[in-house]
Amino acid sequence: METALIVIGIVLLIILIWLISVSNKFNRLSIKVDESISGIDVALTKRYDVLTKMIEVVKGYTKHEKEIMFKIVELRNNMTIAEKSKVNESMNENFDKIQLLVEKYPVLKASDNFKTLQKAIVDVEEHLQAARRLYNANVSLYNELLLSFPSSIVAKFKGITKRDFFAAKEVERDNVDINI
């Protein structure tokens, strides 16, 4: 009887240690995911700033082009990942419009100010892609742990839910004629 109680005690202790370690693993991964969101925020803010400056420069050269409307969804605090993806999409649309306009205005294309901004946006894009990949890699690890058995039991017990990936199209730099 005593031996059985000891065995049960040891088994329960092992289960408890395992529960704590899995729970801690979820916490660690959750912190990493949150940290990587801040990377996306920084990159999106930088992209927004550079794109706004670019639009100002473009507007200066294309005053008579009434039909061209630039509208970037503004960044707010506490946005969800889906909302951030939308902001990014709106930035992509504006960037595409700029690219089309630049082709029509060789003077704008050749201006030093625009060239500097174009170079800056390429680097910002690269940082955004890095932040997105890091975030998605962390989310992937988190979701993998959440869905795999037996850690899924701990997830259910703690009420942990899946995290969303940051969807963004890769910037096809090869198709953009930068000519710096």
């Binding site: 990587s36 990377g39 690269e126 940082h127 892609q129 890095a130 932040a131 990949r133 890091l134 890699a137």
Partner: peptide, 10 residues
């Protein structure tokens, strides 16, 4: 810095 690792290693 993990972000820079992803930035360099595209």
């Amino acid at each position: 810095n993990e972000h820079e690792a992803f930035y360099i290693l595209t």
